[in-house]
Nucleic acid binder design. Structure first.
Lengths: 117, 117
DNA sequence: GGCATCGTCAACCATCCGGTTGAATATGGG
DNA sequence: CCCATATTCAACCGGATGGTTGACGATGCC
């Protein structure tokens, strides 16, 4: 499993791990707190966190006796860049493009993007 | 494995399957032709194609005795939408956006996208 | 020091995954 | 009709995955 895309996508393939990432989006958390909402042993969560760490999606830093987990969303970049190669074929992305352009560049551009003269 | 995100990300986690998707980006292909560049049995490729199909990433249509494989990049939408939740941390894909718009809409739009008056 | 808390390690288990091989099932061509 | 081609099916195998439990090492608090 050499390619980092392998580990990133594999890490994202598990719903528990995606839920953990979503939680960490809110705030950094200690391992015990991450585990709390799940109906699963602490050891299991600990393993999931190792997988997320190896994928580069989170970082763990031990401060005192508690280990803090922190999102590292940069790792998603390689994955999204790869997926982007297929994006040119999704007309659907146009919506996101429009929203992006609207947000980034202000009003007035949408009509041109939507090809509405 | 109920969540479609599970199957999509799991499908993307394998390098052989990603390579297949990249090949299909060029053109639709028959199963045998998909298998040709890989050092792997035809049956193995056939299984990979089943996984990609179940994930909704490709469609297979049998015409005559040959089964054609065709990319269905829409399935990537759910995945990219999910990832987009984390995307606020990625300084976005302006380059690809520009290329997309250039290709789709012809000349003249780039300056506006690049915010060059 | 002594104890509770935080987290991991180790062993184990069931299941899934990616691959193989060989037989089986279309379908098309001469 | 017979044969070659295209693809899948079925059984099997080794290794990874996701979970459990219980013991263990650190760390902080009284």
């Amino acid at each position: 499993m050499a390619d980092p895309l392998d580990t990133v996508f594999a890490a994202l393939a598990d719903p528990t791990r995606r839920a953990i990432l979503a939680m960490l989006l809110e705030d950094d958390m200690a391992v015990t707190d991450v585990a709390e909402p799940f109906d699963m042993s602490l050891a299991a969560i600990s393993k999931h966190l190792v997988i997320l760490t190896r994928a580069g999606l989170i970082a763990q830093e031990k401060r005192g006796r508690v280990k803090w987990c922190k999102l590292k969303p940069d790792a998603l970049k390689s994955a999204s860049v790869w997926m982007q190669g297929f994006g040119q074929f999704e007309p659907v992305h146009l919506d996101a493009f429009e929203r992006f352009l609207t947000a980034e560049l202000g009003d007035g551009i949408e009509d041109q993007v939507a090809n509405r003269p």
